[in-house]
């Protein structure tokens, strides 16, 4: 019996040989992310008259393997901002840590009495992402920031791994940029239309788009998170299931349905 507590529960040296620490030393050059590994797919968001709806599914893929099926890719930052992450999941987790330390600092600070608004948060993330790309060490994500700006108006904007930013009444990352954006733009082509759109219409549109994405995006899941940000706060739901799926369309598509050749 080894009486040293630090050795308890560890492989015994007399059986397995002494632990080889050599590979723990980082002897090689420091490495930067050159490509994403575990990835999340699309994030969708749409503005409506008194807020923003944002959604992302709960899958984290490892290449074509559906590796983690209960990943929360929407982050509630505070009562007026939600962030949706596409791209590398480990970089998402790093940013989550960074943002939680930002929020703690904000809450302890004496100078600012109000919460950070969504547009402030967007500027912060833009600076982080642009700095990292300029260091050739990017955070491999495309991020949507949904919420309310300093004037309490609906705010929706995007940042990506290059530090590129833009804002639009409807936004989507990844496959969603191809498949969901046209559907969302039909409902909400411009800012004027967003001011007319009701919460119910916006949520319905996003749910419909999540369904279309599940039909056609091979790296997607029928389980997703959806959040609505209004003046009343954030209503974030995880683990929603896609409802009323219809695969009838598959019959007519060669190679998609049951028919062979």
């Amino acid at each position: 019996m080894n009486h040293l507590p630090q050795a308890w529960g560890r492989p015994r040296d007399d059986v397995y040989g002494p632990y080889n620490n050599s590979y723990l030393q980082t002897s090689g050059p420091s490495q930067h992310t050159q490509s994403p590994i575990v990835t999340g797919t699309s994030v969708l968001a749409i503005k409506f008259k008194d807020g923003v709806v944002i959604a992302a599914d709960n899958l984290a893929s490892y290449g074509s393997l559906a590796r983690f099926t209960d990943v929360k890719r929407l982050l509630r930052f505070n009562s007026r901002a939600v962030i949706g992450f596409g791209g590398d999941v480990s970089d998402m987790q790093y940013l989550t840590r960074l943002l939680s330390s930002l929020e703690i600092n904000e809450n302890y600070s004496v100078t600012s009495s109000t919460e950070l608004a969504a547009n402030n948060l967007h500027t912060y993330l833009h600076k982080v992402m642009y700095k990292r790309r300029s260091d050739f060490n990017p955070l491999w994500n495309q991020i949507l920031i949904a919420g309310l700006d300093v004037a309490d108006n609906p705010y929706l904007a995007s940042v990506d791994l290059l530090g590129t930013t833009f804002s639009s009444p409807t936004l989507a990352t990844g496959f969603g940029a191809h498949l969901a954006v046209p559907i969302m733009r039909r409902v909400c082509p411009d800012e004027e239309a967003a001011k007319e759109l009701t919460q119910e219409q916006a949520v319905e549109t996003v749910r419909e788009c999540m369904k279309v994405l599940f039909y056609r995006d091979a790296r997607s899941l029928d389980k997703y998170s959806i959040a609505v940000v209004t003046k009343e706060g954030v209503d974030l739901k995880h683990g929603e299931k896609l409802e009323k799926q219809s695969w009838a369309f598959a019959e007519g598509i060669r190679g998609y349905g049951t028919q062979v050749n």
Binding site: H32, T33, Q34, R133, S134, F136, P138, L162, T164
Partner: peptide, 9 residues
């Protein structure tokens, strides 16, 4: 480098 830091908008 697998990362190209520019894009054209």
């Amino acid at each position: 480098h697998g990362f190209y830091p520019y894009t054209d908008n």
